[in-house]
Design a protein around this nucleic acid. Structure first.
Length: 486
RNA sequence: GGGCCGUUAGCUCAGCUCGGUAGAGCAUCGGACUUUUAAUCCGAGGGUCGUGCGUUCGAAUCGCACACGGCUCACCA
């Protein structure tokens, strides 16, 4: 169908014409003297400079008979270029007609300023670097259709500056994250993406078949249990930044394929992990903005340390006036229902409380807050609170109502750990949908002895959302999956 | 999975209420123009109106089904 598009036909004719003139529309190389940003930054000294060679994609073309203006864009910026009949070889000027919006061009000439003050390259020679045969989206309205934006990210990147900025910011954020962890002596590792048992979180996995091993495998929902094995093995500070896969719904803060940082430190507890979280987030924020404040969806977020600490039950009480720390499951269930929270009837007490918190408290936490000390039953991998055995030493950092991570004093007592797995199993029998499956191999590792350990997970995509002021997780992922059309 | 909305030219959109052989701007093509910049001016081409079925003399328009997408609710840490 594309084959019959007139604009494409015409462009192919131009391409043939170029070939007919002995020109290669797809050559191998072009040597630039400058990138556009350099020319703009050194504007004053560049004016008058001769033999400046730049390359890029033609984004606009304005013909005036014996002169032609065009905009050329490289990765660093955009520059106007100017073709004049009297400064170009006659044959070459005729070829200007064959330039289309979208073509890659290498041009060489002199930098000057036009009457209106626009920095411009007066072209003395140019060549085609790649002929574009399909028209780009419109220059003024650009490309808006989200479906096309996600399916053809290359067009989105060409047309929408924000997307490029997001990609760059994302790279900077992850780079800084590594820098901070590396500088503190953390070792970066890679653990299996394909796992025989999935664990470390509550979620439905993606399932696959491992031909060579002749059995079903799962894409990891977390790398937690592997990183802890490394702690057991004596790597005292360890981290991994990787994709996790959870076969569940998509919304503004959830997506099945997402990026997670997990870091573990021996001899540390969750309070140390709070410090580490603050250090990572403030370090990145400072590196990006030069300050500790940024804007997210109309709220000014200030990540200055120390962040607020809010007890899980304390949070519920302060916003609902109700102390739910010692109520029965039934009472918690009724309370949730009375407040319009729809809850699965098989949900355990911890799950219900978690829902109440997520619905009623979390959205109100705009400035950075560590929600601390969670109910035991929803945290089977966390160590019991040193002062209250009903709670665990766990926290979630929340910013702008979004939980950006999860951390604990890691459970290192293999007997307690086994009990927790058993407890999970019985919860499943009660009807709870998602539980932490018992992992014998992991328990065995722990039985050899695991030091006290602090563990931290940070949702990288969510952090990127916050720091780029983009409210949807799909926007901060370069290629979000869409259903394929047959 | 539910609800609402969308799908019309390469792109951005009108037209649908109240059925009568499809419009604009940009892009493209032809012409004019040697400092324009959403260049301008004159002229032209370009569409199985998401797909299928139905109602009707006649469907972009009304109905049903399906596909894809968006928002939202639910699910999901």
């Amino acid at each position: 169908m594309e084959e019959i598009l007139d604009q494409k036909k015409i462009r192919i004719e131009k391409l043939e014409k170029l070939k007919g003139l002995g020109l290669n529309p797809y050559p191998y190389k072009f040597v630039r003297t400058h990138i556009i940003k350099e020319i703009r930054e050194k504007e004053e000294e560049m004016v008058g400079a001769n033999s400046v060679a730049i390359a890029g994609r033609i984004m606009a073309k304005r013909g005036h008979g014996k002169t032609v203006f065009a905009d050329i864009k490289d990765e660093s910026g955009k520059l106007q270029i100017y073709f004049r009949k009297d400064t170009l070889d006659k044959k070459l000027f005729e070829i200007v007609d064959l330039i289309d919006i979208g073509d890659f061009i290498g041009a060489q000439g002199e930098i000057f300023k036009t009457g209106t003050g626009e920095l411009t390259l007066l072209v003395k020679g140019f060549e085609f670097l790649s002929k574009s045969v399909f028209p780009l989206p419109e220059k003024w309205h650009g490309l808006k259709d989200k479906e096309i934006r996600y399916r053809k990210r290359y067009l989105d990147l060409i047309m929408n500056k924000d997307v490029r900025e997001m990609v760059v910011m994302r790279a900077k954020i992850i780079k800084k994250m590594r820098e901070i962890l590396d500088s503190k002596g953390f070792i970066e590792v890679e653990t299996p993406t394909l796992q025989p048992l999935y664990g470390g979180a509550f979620a439905q996995p993606f399932k696959t078949y491992y031909n060579a091993l002749e059995r079903d495998y799962f894409l990891r929902i977390s790398d937690e249990l592997y990183l802890k094995r490394l702690i057991i093995g004596g790597i005292e500070k360890v981290y991994e930044i990787c994709k996790d896969f959870r076969n569940e719904g998509i919304d503004k803060t959830h997506i099945p394929e997402f990026t997670m940082l997990e870091a573990y430190e021996a001899y540390a507890d969750y309070a140390d992990m709070m410090d580490l979280t603050e250090e990572i987030v403030t370090g990145i924020t400072k590196a990006l903005f030069g300050s500790l404040k940024f804007n997210f969806q109309g709220n000014e977020i200030d990540v200055s340390r120390p962040w607020k600490r809010l007890g899980f039950y304390e949070g519920i009480e302060s916003l609902t006036g109700e102390n739910l720390s010692e109520v029965t499951r039934g009472k918690a269930y009724t309370f949730a229902r009375d407040h319009g929270i729809d809850i699965d009837e098989n949900a355990g007490k911890g799950k219900i409380l978690d829902e109440i918190f997520d619905e009623m408290v979390q959205p109100k936490l705009i400035q950075p807050t560590f929600v601390i000390d969670y109910p035991l039953e929803i945290s089977p991998l966390a160590k019991k609170h040193r002062k209250n055995p009903e709670l665990v030493e766990r926290f979630e950092p929340v910013i702008a109502g979004i939980e950006i991570g999860n951390a604990f004093s890691e459970l290192n007592d293999p007997f307690d750990q086994r009990e927790r797995f058993e407890q999970q199993k019985s919860m499943k029998e009660m009807g709870e949908g998602e539980i932490q499956e018992l992992d014998e191999d992991f328990l065995k590792a722990m039985e050899y002895g695991m030091p006290p350990t602090g563990g931290l997970g940070i949702g990288v995509d969510r952090l990127v959302m916050l720091l780029t002021d983009i409210p949807s997780i799909r926007e901060v992922i370069v290629f979000p999956q869409l259903k394929s059309k047959e």
